[in-house]
């Protein structure tokens, strides 16, 4: 049940990311729902579950991006790793901490893309990327994140109620 619900969430988020989320673009930038979910998994799930989900989501995102395979696997995997490792050392509840975590994650995600474009693909990246697109992307994710956390927490709570033995292996 738990894994099935995770697949359903993934299908919904990826479908939304690749279709109607474009309607909410601000200056050509849309929030990265997958990144928010990876941070959520890193914070809420067990270490193995968080990192595993991060890598898997990154891999699927790479497959759907038409970009260099491995870029999102790397960034999402490391983001999930960092949050899985450090969650016990930080206060991770509330809008402000989640927003700050998402800003840091978004900047890291953008920088991984930037350096992979510059170093591996030798592609062109607009000069405004670092001082325009990336900050907007980070703030947009930080604003979307807390709302998504609330929704995902509700789904998680509902799942726990429905299941007598709720995903013991995945929870922290």
């Amino acid at each position: 049940m738990f894994y099935f619900s995770q697949v359903l969430i993934a299908v919904f988020l990826f479908s939304a990311q690749t279709t109607w989320l474009e309607l909410f673009s601000f200056g050509g930038v849309t929030p990265d729902l997958i990144l928010v979910w990876v941070v959520y998994c890193g914070i809420r799930y067990s270490r193995t579950g968080g990192i595993g989900t991060g890598i898997a989501l990154g891999l699927v995102q790479d497959s759907l991006s038409g970009g260099l395979l491995g870029v999102n696997t790397l960034s999402k995997g490391l983001i999930a790793y960092v949050f899985s490792t450090l969650k016990g050392k930080f206060y991770v509840e509330g809008v402000v901490p989640i927003g700050i975590f998402l800003i840091c994650s978004s900047i890291f995600d953008g920088l991984v893309f930037y350096f992979s474009m510059e170093i591996v693909l030798k592609g062109e990246v607009a000069p405004s990327f670092l001082y325009q697109s990336l900050p907007v992307y980070s703030i947009y994710n930080a604003l979307t994140g807390p709302f998504m956390f609330v929704v995902l927490d509700k789904i998680d709570g509902w799942l726990q109620l429905k299941m007598s033995n709720p995903h013991m292996g995945m929870r922290r």
Binding site: I51, I55, L59, V60, D62, S63, L64, L68, L69, G70, V71, T73, L74, G77, L78, Y81, S116, V120, L121
Partner: peptide, 25 residues
């Protein structure tokens, strides 16, 4: 994580044509 991602990147750069299995799925 680094090794896995870099292996994917290397494979992807070397593979010039055709969709990868993952892409198709």
């Amino acid at each position: 994580i680094l090794l896995f991602s870099l292996s994917l990147m290397t494979l992807n750069v070397k593979q010039e044509k055709g969709a990868t299995f993952l892409d198709s799925i």
